[in-house]
Write a protein that binds this DNA or RNA. Structure first.
Lengths: 203, 203, 203, 203
DNA sequence: TATGAATGAGTGTTCATTCAT
DNA sequence: AATGAATGAACACTCATTCAT
């Protein structure tokens, strides 16, 4: 680990700010959150934030990138050694919702706040999100190549369809007060998509 | 000026502002758009906007509500007389994406900008959106009651799943530069869900 | 007078802000003066300043330009009809110091504050100042053409020499607490330069 | 490290900071220069600057004082043994502009940046500047006592007049891109003032 | 001495909203 | 109803200065 990287990690300031910003943005929204709010939550001075992040937008981007990294890392780990594509897709769906459940504030920021920064939807290319979407797409393509999933549907469209469904369901669950068993949802959604995908070929 | 003419004139201003705000919010985002931007686009004075809308948030809410009204009205019309639930669901999917295609600025505002106003996701109950989601749910429940759709899945979850998928695919299409045939997407997505729904019961 | 110009002049806000800014900048210096200071002095809201001036720098530039306009206007008027170049130069020197005396705050801003805005010394071309310097130069050149002033010296250098002397003496007088008869200074300086200029040729 | 070596090292840092600050202030202006800019240019840590200077203002004052010391030292040296007052004044004028030419950054800081710190023009008494002005005044008074310069003019006014002229011409030369022969200017200005001063008495 | 991370007060500028006309 | 000049609260960001190491 480089010295500067070590400094950032070790001091904990960087991570403390990221965590505080995630919480603050989730609670008040990105635009309604002030840098001062984040500083207070992180228990650092306002100026300190600018030692670690270029500006307020950069803070949001950083939350996003580090989160997607985590998502992808967890997925890789969870699917390691699983060869059956149907099982891979089922686990991806389950894990996605589990992660949302485990990091509800994060999920909220990613889903809602991310889309408002004009930077994101218009200027920022969103490589990390694409990486995750590609992950989904790879599973679908593998399934199609194996003949397990039908090949009529464009994997590009399917990845969006699945991601959108998971994103929306996850968000709704995060926002709703009554927190039912998200696990059951996973099964229903996985069944829906797996059947949808496998049976199409027999048409 | 007669009273009815005046009324029309009023309503003309109202609609002009709604249209201008939709366009402006889609272009610059809700928070980055100023009331002055909207006024300029609508060719009215800033103060005039406050004769028709309580405040800037109210403008966004109004866009949303009138749009969802349109969505539901169009859906009602399109599904009128169609009794086959599978066909009803297929048409709903197709029409949803068609409407997005026809009103891309609106879709952008609904999808992105709507979620930023903390008012919306936290305070505003979003009755109109619920109304639309209920519309989807009704079709599913009818299908389940008829035995055409399997009954394992919670209609409540399904409506979110389908809505999320349509929302995400529609948004992506709106934002992408290369505008391919959205119609083909509709068929693929409809097939996916219909098969997913119908085959589940046979499991 | 155009309507918008009339508005600006009539409301008096523009001039009130210019006057308040001149006073404030003279007292505290440009950089140490806050826009809020100026607003308070002008008895307008902070935001109002931005309706009349692009930004704080623009305020300084505007003070400068309108002042140099006044300087030149007064000079034109004072020298109108005077044909003798020696008398013209003498009157210019006298009037310059009189104007400084009459508008000491203005003089202070012009002399000191003007030079700090990087805009001015580096980016701003300072056309109005050049116009005034050209005014001085014209007198010198006319004198040289008539053979009244000697022609050994570059009019370009002379104009700077005279301007610098007047500027420095004027400033010092403005800043010093004991305010003696500036008029007597005028005579001494005029004598010095006129003799310097006229006798050089006989060398 | 020996004590004397340490002292030298200290002094080395001191001078390095002075030099870096002069350069930085000349380039960006005093207010727009940050202490961090100066530290970077001097290749020391920010905190180090505060070991040698009380604060940012003190840095500017120190530049000024050490420069005026140099000015006076050089003048003393250059005029040593010259008894003819006319020659003394001529040499002073020439040397002033030569020094400006040799230390253009310094000249710029002295002329422009110095005047912005409210400390200077209002609170700071400027002893060193007075010392230099007194230097000029002494020459004039000597000339008047000898009967070489006419006695009509107040030496106090004359010193300001000459200083102002030199300051302005020097500054203009420093700022202008096209750098002509400043030496020629010296001769013209010296001629102008010497004739102005000597001939006044014969009037 | 020397460092440079941390601080937090301070400021230019924006913009939603109001209200006299 | 319509206007748009005026308001002033709010906020992102900077930077001189400090201090623990």
């Amino acid at each position: 680990m480089s010295e500067s990287a070590q400094k950032k990690e070790e001091s904990g300031k960087y991570n403390r700010i990221i965590a505080a910003a995630t919480k603050t943005f989730a609670e008040k929204g990105f635009f309604k959150s002030t840098v001062s709010d984040v500083a207070r939550a992180a228990e650092v001075a306002e100026g300190t934030i600018y030692l670690y992040f270029k500006n307020k937008d950069d803070l949001l981007i950083s939350i996003f990138e580090s989160s997607m990294d985590m998502f992808i890392r967890e997925m890789d780990q969870a699917l390691e050694g699983i060869t059956d594509v149907k099982e891979r897709l089922r686990r991806l769906i389950t894990l996605h919702l589990s992660l949302v459940e485990a990091h509800r504030e994060l999920a909220q920021v990613l889903h809602i706040e991310l889309r408002q920064s004009s930077m994101f939807m218009r200027e920022y290319t969103g490589d990390k999100l694409k990486q995750y979407l590609k992950f989904i797409q790879d599973i679908i393509e593998a399934g199609q190549a194996e003949g397990v999933f039908n090949s009529n549907a464009d994997p590009y469209v399917l990845r969006r369809t699945i991601f959108g469904a998971l994103d929306e369901v996850g968000l709704k669950w995060v926002l709703s007060k009554r927190k039912g068993p998200l696990e059951q949802f996973s099964k229903q959604i996985a069944d829906l998509f797996l059947n949808g995908l496998t049976q199409l070929k027999e048409k």
